[in-house]
Write a protein that binds this DNA or RNA. Structure first.
Length: 485
RNA sequence: GGCGGCAUAGCCAAGUGGUAAGGCAGCGGUCUGCAAAACCGCCAUUCUCCGGUUCAAAUCCGGAUGCCGCCUCCA
């Protein structure tokens, strides 16, 4: 597999550190609000990465943390009249609900910052001991950025540029404005923990250094997160870990691109974010997941309602074909006959190409292109009566369905039985458009009665009425089926 | 101010040296009582613009324009 390494600024062949195993850490959320689509993207991207590595046969140990102590959580706690623990718990539960709807697998280990205070205290002590950190008069502890070599490599900037461009308010307490906090002395009323330097709490970057070392060891294979974490979070994390554990910290740094709204980054600070639960009220979670997979993970992705509707259409098309295959395979035994070797060959080619796309820096957009290739091939073959009825045809249909399932397990989509999923989409769509499905059923039934009486004029009148609602009726051998156009 | 990214058809989008995947929409055909779905065919001589390198460039280099991001919490 080839993966883009932010540290090297290029795609690299993925060579794992330990035979057959991959150790991977991804920065999770700070639990102080509902997750938005940006969080969804990050989770989907790394979920697919884990699933694909497992598909390739690696034993993956995947750690994703929760930041449950932080300024923003403390602020939220004050606003909501809760403890910061309660705030964090509330939003961690919401995270599980939302990500569950997106079919995100749980990480193997999901550590929380507050459960690792001792590890962080020890790490801070170690950095002090090694001379990489210092205590200020206020009792805060800072990391000496200039002391560590290679600072700025990850985010692609040098120390002098950083200083020139700094917009942070000057802090007289720091030896150097670049230094960042490892430990913050507690202010009155704040949640705090005891330490050799008095009551306080850890700085944000510290938890990932402490927890990744604890659960994965140093160095480990992959560290992931959103692009906005590259600086300062990952840069600082890397500095700390390198200083504390001597040497290489992470082999591959992987960062996903942003979700944008009207060409602007979706973010908390801009306030232009759409939460996952907002989307789930109107769309199936799989539609959102599918949409996120239609762009390469490192490109910016523009979110819009239109884009979501298109994703829904595309997904519907795939599920239609899946349903058709499922239904056909339920039918009678096949007969001997033609081998359909050309179709077989085309199918195998698609399988190879799908894998190549995924191998090449997780190109899910391209991989989805081959899914549509499979859909087209399946539909073309399903049109042929002799194919449907013969044994080699059935085997191929079975294999195509199997491929769809296998790919679906990696991408985290196409996993529901076709008809049930299509029904769910229809229900979501009705809800979105305020349409009562029962009323539609009645109209369709009336039309069918008219048709039986060969009263095509009446039947067409009902078709027209339905069309005005955006609904099409399909007359199939098994009776009429309606859906949105 | 510093650093980085992006620009592909009406829309979305893949594509880092070998002659433009895929989806949506549109057009023609098959099928159909009429339709829909599905299938077949058509739909970018061209990848923001201007130069350069090369037998060969959407892809590499230089420049211009536009948009975005990071440098402050942010997935």
């Amino acid at each position: 597999m080839i993966i883009y390494n932010t540290l090297k600024r290029q795609k690299e062949r993925f060579i794992h550190l330990e035979p057959g195993k991959v150790r991977m850490y991804v920065c999770g959320i700070t639990a102080y609000d509902f997750c938005h689509i940006g969080h969804a993207r990050s989770c989907v991207v790394f979920d697919v990465l884990v699933r694909y590595l497992r598909f390739l046969g690696f034993k993956v140990l995947f750690v994703r943390n929760f930041t449950d102590v932080d300024d923003k959580i403390i602020k939220k706690a004050q606003e909501e009249g809760l403890s910061s623990m309660e705030v964090a718990e509330k939003y961690i539960q919401a995270f599980y609900e939302d990500m569950g709807a997106l079919n995100i697998l749980r990480a193997d280990i999901e550590p929380r910052a507050t459960e690792h205070i001792q590890e962080m205290v020890r790490l801070t002590a170690k950095l002090l001991e090694k001379g990489y950190a210092y205590v200020t008069s206020k009792g805060d502890i800072y990391f000496r950025v200039r002391k560590i070599s290679g600072y700025g490599q990850l985010s692609g900037r040098n120390i002098e540029e950083l200083q020139a461009g700094t917009r942070i308010a000057l802090d007289e307490d720091k030896e150097d404005q670049l230094d960042f906090a490892l430990w913050k002395a507690a202010k009155p009323g704040e949640t705090s923990w005891d330490s050799p330097w008095g009551a306080g709490r850890p700085g944000w970057h510290l938890e990932c250094s402490a927890m990744s070392e604890k659960y994965l060891g140093i160095p480990f294979d992959i560290h992931g997160g959103g692009q906005d974490l590259a600086f300062p979070h990952h840069e600082n994390e890397r500095a700390q870990s390198k200083a504390a554990f001597d040497g290489e910290f992470v082999k591959y740094w992987v960062h996903n691109g942003f979700v944008r709204v009207n060409a602007e980054k979706m973010s908390k600070s801009l306030g232009n974010f759409v939460t996952i639960r907002d989307i789930l009220a109107a769309y199936h979670g799989e539609v959102l997941r599918f949409f996120l997979l239609t762009n390469h993970y490192r490109s910016p992705l523009d979110f819009s309602d239109t884009a979501l509707q298109e994703a829904e259409k595309a997904l519907k098309k795939i599920y239609w074909t899946k349903s058709a295959l499922e239904k056909e395979l339920e039918k009678h035994e096949g007969t001997r006959g033609e081998q359909f070797s050309e179709a077989r060959e085309e199918f195998q080619e698609l399988t190879e190409k799908w894998n190549q796309a995924m191998q090449d820096d997780l190109n899910t957009a391209q991989a989805l292109g081959y899914v549509f290739g499979l859909v087209r091939l399946a539909n073309r073959m399903l049109d042929i009566k002799s194919f449907r009825k013969n044994e080699p045809g059935k085997t191929l249909m079975h294999d195509m369905l199997d491929a769809l399932k296998k790919w679906g397990e990696v991408l985290g989509v196409f996993l529901s039985p076709g008809p049930a999923f299509l029904e769910q989409l229809k229900i979501m769509r009705c809800r979105r458009q305020n349409i009562d499905p029962q009323a539609i059923n009645k109209m369709v039934q009336k039309r069918q009665e008219a048709r039986k009486e060969k009263n095509f004029e009446a039947a067409d009148r009902i078709r027209q009425e339905l069309a005005e609602l955006g609904i099409e009726v399909m007359d199939t051998p098994d009776g009429p089926v309606w859906d949105f156009a």
